[in-house]
């Protein structure tokens, strides 16, 4: 599914004058969500930056009906809302959870896992800005190795939790990763997800200029570099089939990847790592491990014809 920018209607997809910081990736993501789904969706927003971006009542900066809910209840509230819509005969309404990485990987994880297991018909989008940006850049379980936050002054010592793979392990209908650096890819994935009935999960990388310490003009560029360096591969998992997105397929070859230092040196949160080759080597090894995992997944979910017959006969 390709997206033609020129065919997107000339209208507002977000209300200007909202409370987002300049260069905010979340408002970019919200615009793409509205472009993909049109007028027929409802957002459920657990606590996070998106709760603040709406601005001050009686005005709202986000062009969609919103339910603001507590951190731990994002997916369960959406599941209930979907059941409510179905009971009044509005099966066409898409219920979208728009949660941050804390609301997905740390505090909201039990609700997410529960909704995934029940296969509730909702679209869960995790906007991953890799820390608790709204409360003042505290470490989350999705903060990558070596990144500075206000609670990890010398850089985090653990690697990022791989939520998309955990969701694939739940056996849900659709899992995808996307980056705000590639808007058309994200729009296409949301459109595809909205056609599927069942639990859908999209992991959207959102480079935050405030927390990652870079110039706001580079939001899109850093989103692209994360993919080009191989740190954040774009892939889709649909009904037992795993495939890399066309944009990320060429970075499977390590020689085609951009050196990871290009990505790190743009961001102030990695400033203390730049002159430490052993730390950069650890990040490079992590990239290798990600792509090894992807290779394994491709082989596991797309077995050769003979292997599939063998599996079918068992």
């Amino acid at each position: 599914m390709t997206v033609n920018i020129k065919r997107i209607p000339k209208k507002k997809f977000l209300m200007p004058g909202n409370a987002a910081c300049p260069g905010c990736p979340e408002t970019m993501g919200m615009r793409y969500l509205k472009m993909a789904l049109g007028d027929n969706f409802v957002m459920v927003i657990p606590a996070g930056c998106s709760s603040v971006i709406q601005g001050i009542a009686p005005r709202s900066g986000i062009y969609a009906p919103i339910l603001n809910i507590v951190f731990a209840a994002g997916a369960s509230a959406a599941a209930g809302m979907k059941a409510g819509f179905e009971s009044i005969g509005r099966k066409d309404v898409e219920v979208v959870v728009w949660a941050g990485d804390g609301g997905t990987g740390d505090i909201g994880f039990q609700a997410l896992s529960g909704a995934a297991e029940r296969d509730d018909d909702i679209l869960y989008i995790c906007v991953d800005n890799e820390a608790y940006m709204n409360t003042g850049i505290q470490r989350s379980s999705l903060t990558p190795y070596g990144a500075w936050t206000t609670t990890t002054w010398t850089g985090k010592r653990e690697h990022k939790k791989n939520i998309p793979l955990i969701m694939i392990a739940h056996g849900v209908k659709y899992v995808a990763t996307a980056s705000v650096g590639y808007p058309t890819d994200f729009i296409a994935k949301v459109k595809k997800a909205s056609q599927i009935r069942g639990f859908k999960y999209i992991h959207l990388l959102a480079p935050c200029p405030v927390g990652w310490r870079f110039d706001p003009a580079l939001t899109g560029e850093i989103g692209q570099l994360a993919v080009k360096t191989g740190l954040f591969p774009l892939y889709e998992y649909e009904n037992g089939k795993f495939q890399l997105s066309p944009l990320a397929r060429r970075y499977k070859d390590p020689s085609k990847r951009v050196p990871v230092i290009e990505y790190l040196k743009l961001q102030g949160r990695y400033k203390h790592l730049i002159n430490k080759p052993e730390e950069i080597k650890k990040i490079e090894e992590y990239i290798e491990s990600i792509w090894y995992m992807i290779d394994v997944l491709e082989k596991a979910f797309n077995p050769k014809e003979e292997a599939r017959k063998l599996l079918g006969s068992l």
């Binding site: 209300m15 004058g17 409370a19 001050i56 009686p58 005005r59 709202s60 900066g61 969609a64």
Partner: peptide, 8 residues
Amino acid sequence: SHPSPGSV
């Protein structure tokens, strides 16, 4: 709240 420009 209703969507309108200039919420802040």
